[in-house]
C-alpha cells in the first residue's frame, strides 16, 4: 500500500499530447485520451486514478507545464 495518494489536473486545452508524462509516471496512472482537444491533440488524463501517488514526475517532465499535482498521506 502506497504511503501517499495523489491526483493530477491536466490543462487539457494546453496539452499537446506528447506522451512524456505517460512514460515518466511510475505507477502507470496517465494515458492519452481517445478524444482530442481543440487543437486536435490526444491530451493526457488520469486513466488509472487510484494508482496515483502524487510524485510529480509527470509535472517535472511536462514541456508545457500543464500538469498540477496534489498529494495527501494515505489513510
Amino acid at each position: 500500500m502506497a504511503k501517499f495518494k495523489g491526483a493530477i489536473v491536466v490543462d487539457t486545452e494546453k496539452c499537446k499530447g506528447c506522451g512524456l508524462c505517460v512514460v515518466a509516471c511510475p505507477t502507470k496512472v496517465i494515458e492519452l485520451a481517445r478524444d482530442v482537444n481543440g487543437k486536435g491533440y490526444h491530451y493526457a488524463h488520469m486513466a488509472n486514478a487510484d494508482a496515483c501517488i502524487g510524485c510529480s514526475s509527470c509535472g517535472l517532465v511536462c514541456p508545457d507545464t500543464v500538469i498540477t499535482v496534489y498529494r495527501v498521506k494515505a489513510s
Binding site: K14, G17, L20, G54, L60, P63, T65, V69, R71
Partner: peptide, 22 residues
C-alpha cells in the same frame, strides 16, 4: 495538498514549441 504547479514566473502564454520539445 498542492505539491507541484506552474511557477508564476512562467507566463500563461502557450508555448509555440512542438509537442515534447525540451
Amino acid at each position: 495538498n498542492l505539491v507541484y504547479n506552474k511557477t508564476s514566473v512562467l507566463l500563461d502564454n502557450e508555448m509555440h514549441y512542438c509537442p515534447g520539445c525540451t
